[in-house]
């Protein structure tokens, strides 16, 4: 399944990474090289094999429904949440105007 320039651009767009023509050309070759190599997985007979879900046998634990039980995973820390914001605005994160 060789990918072409158009596919490279589509993937870059889905991934939200702007790429130049030169980058797209370079990536086409690299990605085809890597994808061509991983395609050897198709040789493996996986009949009756379930995809791996948990690497180590373990069950999903559930949290109690308590607000701010642990400050590290609780709210009420707006200053911390906004501390690194490129464009903090009156307690909000500012982004270029979005037209829906």
């Amino acid at each position: 399944m060789a990918i072409d320039q158009a596919t490279v651009r589509k993937i870059a767009s889905l991934a939200r990474i702007a790429i130049s023509d030169a980058e797209a050309t370079a990536m086409e070759g690299e990605l085809n090289g890597i994808l061509g190599w991983v395609e050897q997985l198709g040789e493996v007979d996986v009949t009756g094999v379930e995809p791996m879900t948990a690497v180590i046998p373990n069950t999903l634990r559930l949290r109690d429904d308590v607000v701010d039980a642990d400050p590290l995973t609780g709210g009420n820390r707006r200053d911390d949440v906004l501390a690194n914001a490129p464009e903090p605005q009156h307690g909000f994160f500012g982004v270029p105007k979005v037209i829906e």
Partner: peptide, 18 residues
């Protein structure tokens, strides 16, 4: 991405199980 998920990702997770 659409159309490739099973061929790549699902297959890889099956191989991982093996």
């Amino acid at each position: 991405s659409a159309g490739f998920y099973d061929a790549y990702y699902t297959q890889a997770q099956k191989v991982r199980a093996l």
